[in-house]
């Protein structure tokens, strides 16, 4: 075990994958010599050469289009989009190409080896265009997997699983935690399962569900609630698509209550999908309405960032409302 922050864990996973399989190639804006604007790809070019780790021209649609072609040829591209906010020029390539290659060709051609890495999320004074959490847009696309880690250990294991999974994966990295989250990470190769949520902490009265950087927010809120005698079960969803309805439903059947927290705006956010499914599966077990604590339905603001964020205080208040319903 080594203490790593999330960037180091991601870097370590990329080195592991590139060492094990020479078909793995890493590219994107500034990822080459410089090692990426966050340094997630540090030293990869030095270690594996310019052919396998390289800068691309500044064009997200180009990066993903190129990656789709490369994946369909059988290579294993790990493409970086510098900020989740800048993924939208590639939306057509992802929605109409990455996700549909396999289906439209009857399984003859696929982009299954593709992994798209992108930092997302707020809390870093990034304003409108360095803060967004676009997971719900991509959750609407059959054919994609979406994975979000909450800490360095999860980041390495989930990224390795994503690179090796035979489906295209959008791997979203909570940039607020890049350097802030530090933990023990094994040096050796390991994978964590895709499509599986993790119960981080057992509890009795309410299930709290989040992913990425918001997991520590619900943990903090749960601590406050524990002081009031409210026992919270904490679940990290980890995969947005396909998501682990079973683990979540089992938890809700036990606690009778569910709170979902995400940074993205509430309307059309992934919490909506979870709520619909859970009420279908757990209707008779519910003691209170499923509660969402989310970003507001505004663009992501700078000056009012603190007020906008679905923080631990809003979550704590929502827990109490839910339990006292």
């Amino acid at each position: 075990m080594t203490k790593m922050n999330m960037l180091q864990a991601i870097n370590n996973a990329l080195i592991t994958a590139m060492t094990e399989d020479e078909k793995v190639m890493v590219f994107g804006e500034d990822v080459g010599h410089f090692g990426g604007v966050f340094r997630a790809t540090s030293n990869l070019q030095h270690q594996f050469g310019k052919g396998r780790c390289f800068n691309t021209p500044l064009t997200e649609q180009g990066i993903i289009g190129f990656a789709n072609g490369l994946a369909s040829q059988g290579s294993v591209p790990v493409a970086e989009i510098q900020f989740g906010d800048y993924i939208f020029p590639a939306f057509d390539q992802i929605v109409n190409e990455t996700a549909k290659f396999r289906y439209r060709s009857g399984g003859q051609f696929t982009c299954g080896t593709l992994t798209i890495r992108t930092p997302y999320g707020g809390g870093i004074a990034g304003g409108l265009y360095h803060s967004q959490s676009p997971e719900a847009f991509f959750a609407h696309i059959p054919g994609m997997k979406i994975v979000i880690p909450r800490n360095p250990y999860q980041a390495k294991g989930l990224l390795l699983a994503s690179i090796r999974d035979d489906n295209p994966v959008l791997f979203m990295e909570p940039k607020r935690l890049y350097r802030a989250s530090v933990g023990d990470v094994p040096e050796e190769d390991y994978e964590l399962p895709l499509g599986k949520a993790e119960v981080v902490k057992k509890g009795e009265h309410i299930s709290l569900l989040a992913w990425g950087a918001q997991v520590e927010v619900i943990e903090k809120a749960a601590e406050m609630a524990e002081n009031d005698g409210i026992s919270c079960e904490i679940i990290d969803l980890r995969s947005i698509l396909p998501w682990d309805a079973q683990t979540v439903s089992e938890s809700v059947k036990k606690t009778g209550r569910l709170l979902i927290n995400h940074e993205a705006p509430q309307t059309g956010g992934f919490a909506s999908e979870i709520s619909a499914t859970v009420q279908e599966r757990c209707f008779l077990y519910l003691e209170s309405p499923i509660t969402r604590v989310c970003g507001l339905d505004t663009p992501y603001p700078l000056a009012h960032e603190k007020e906008y964020m679905p923080d631990h205080l809003k979550t704590y208040e929502a827990i109490k409302r839910c339990v006292n319903f």
């Binding site: 500034d30 080459g32 021209p57 500044l58």
Partner: peptide
């Protein structure tokens, strides 16, 4: 372009 020199851009 940030760190990317023009000769890697076009």
């Amino acid at each position: 372009a940030i760190s990317t020199p023009a000769n890697e851009q076009f």
